[in-house]
C-alpha cells in the first residue's frame, strides 16, 4: 500500500543480560513483545509500521546466547551467533561445510555480520503481498492474494501450501535439516528440544507463524550432532542476483557414501514450500544406491511428484528436480 511509513514507532527497549530475564520480559509483554536479535527482519517490520511492538527485548547482552562450542557429541551454536561467525568457524568449515556454505551465501557481508543464525531461521516470509501489509491469511485476514490466478507469484511455493503459498526464506534451514540438527527452545516452563525439520510451522496448522516458537519462548541453541560430521555435503542456492536476494530455491544434502554406495543421507530444500522440507521420498530412492544420473533424476522426479505450480512458478519444478540431481551428482556420479 502506498502509505509511506518509514519511521519506527516508539517502543520500550530492554537489554537483559540473561535468557531467563529475556523470557520473563517476553512473557510479561506477550503478543506486544518483540525479540530483537540481529534485527535484519525486525527493522523492516517496524519501519513499515506494520508491526508495532510495545516492548523490544534486545538480546545483544545475553552472553549465553553467543558463540560456537564443541561438545562431546557434536557442536553447539548459540542463537545470537552471527552468520559470519558461522560461515568462518574452523570446526564447522572442516566437518559441517554444508552449513558454512549456506551461511556464507546469505544476503550480503554486512547482513551476515549482524544477522544471527537464529534470526535466519526465524525470519518471516518475504511474500510481497504479506510484507506489503495486505490483509492475507498470514496477516490474520481471509484471503490469499498470492495464489490468485492473476497474482504475481514467481517466488512462491509449489509444495506444502495450505491457503498460504509463501515460502520460507531461510538459507541455513535446509543445511541444518541435512545435518539433523536440533533446536533448543527455552520458555517459562523450561527447555524443549525439537528436530530442525519440526521447528518450522506448517501453514495448515498455524498460518500466522513461521515457526513453532510461541510468545515468551526463545530459540537458544542449535545442536549439531556429530552423526554427519565430515559427510559428503552438497549445498546450492539459486537466486536472481548473487547478493541480497532470497533464494528461488536451495538444496542441502549430507550423504554417507561407502564403497560407492549411498549408505545413508539426509536431503532438504527450501524455497519450495512455506517451510523447509526434508526430502524423505528422494532419500528413500537414493539410500543404498550408487549415485548416478538416472538415480539422481529419479530422486528429483519423486520430490516434485505432488508439486502444484501457481501461474508463474512452474519453473520451480524443474529447478527443484535439477537441484536434487546436482546434489546426487555432487556426491560423485
Amino acid at each position: 500500500m502506498a502509505v509511506i511509513r518509514d519511521m519506527i514507532p516508539a517502543f520500550e527497549l530492554f537489554q537483559p543480560t540473561s535468557a531467563d530475564d529475556a523470557i520473563e520480559l517476553l512473557i510479561r509483554y506477550g503478543e506486544d513483545g518483540w525479540v530483537l536479535g540481529g534485527g535484519m527482519d525486525s527493522f523492516d517490520w517496524w519501519k513499515e509500521r506494520i508491526k508495532r511492538p510495545t516492548a523490544v527485548v534486545d538480546l545483544v547482552n545475553v552472553d549465553e546466547l553467543h558463540g560456537i562450542r564443541t561438545t562431546a557429541d557434536g557442536i553447539e551454536i548459540g542463537a545470537m551467533t552471527t552468520l559470519t561467525e558461522v560461515a568462518t568457524h574452523p570446526e564447522l568449515l572442516a566437518n559441517y561445510s554444508v552449513l558454512t556454505d549456506a551461511a556464507s551465501q546469505i544476503a550480503t557481508p554486512q547482513i551476515r555480520n549482524r544477522g544471527t543464525i537464529a534470526g535466519n531461521l526465524i525470519q518471516d516470509t518475504r511474500c510481497w503481498y504479506y510484507r506489503g501489509g495486505w490483509p492475507c491469511y498470514r496477516a490474520g485476514g481471509n484471503t490469499c492474494y498470492a495464489s490468485a490466478p492473476t497474482a504475481m507469484n514467481r517466488e512462491h511455493a509449489i509444495l506444502g501450501t495450505s491457503r498460504c503459498v509463501a515460502v520460507s526464506p531461510s538459507d541455513s534451514a535446509p543445511a541444518l535439516i541435512a545435518l539433523d540438527a536440533q533446536f533448543v527452545i527455552k520458555g517459562s516452563r523450561g527447555e524443549r528440544v525439537v528436530d530442525a525439520e519440526d521447528f518450522f510451522m506448517r501453514p495448515s496448522v498455524d498460518i500466522e507463524r513461521m515457526t513453532i516458537l510461541k510468545p515468551g519462548e526463545l530459540l537458544t541453541t542449535i545442536r549439531i550432532p556429530s552423526t554427519w560430521a565430515g559427510a559428503t555435503f552438497y549445498y546450492e542456492k539459486i537466486e536472481d542476483r548473487k547478493a541480497w536476494d532470497f533464494a528461488l530455491m536451495t538444496v542441502a544434502s549430507a550423504m554417507r557414501i561407502n564403497g560407492g554406495v549411498i549408505e545413508d543421507l539426509r536431503m532438504a530444500v527450501n524455497g519450495a514450500a512455506p517451510f523447509p522440507i526434508r526430502l524423505e521420498d528422494s532419500e528413500r530412492v537414493l539410500r543404498g544406491q550408487t549415485p548416478s544420473e538416472e538415480i539422481g533424476l529419479r530422486a528429483g522426479e519423486v520430490a516434485i511428484r505432488d508439486a502444484q505450480p501457481l501461474r508463474h512458478n512452474d519453473f520451480k519444478l524443474p529447478l527443484m528436480r535439477n537441484l536434487i540431481r546436482r546434489a546426487v551428482r555432487g556426491a560423485g556420479v
Partner: peptide, 27 residues
C-alpha cells in the same frame, strides 16, 4: 534505502562493516 538493501550507510562496528540503518544505537 534505510532497509539494508544498498549499503550506503555502512559503518564499522567493532571493526566489522555493518548497515547502520539496521541496528539500534542502543545495541
Amino acid at each position: 534505502c534505510d532497509r539494508a538493501e544498498c549499503g550506503a550507510c555502512t559503518v564499522l562496528i567493532d571493526g566489522v562493516n555493518s548497515y547502520s540503518c539496521s541496528v539500534l544505537t542502543h545495541t
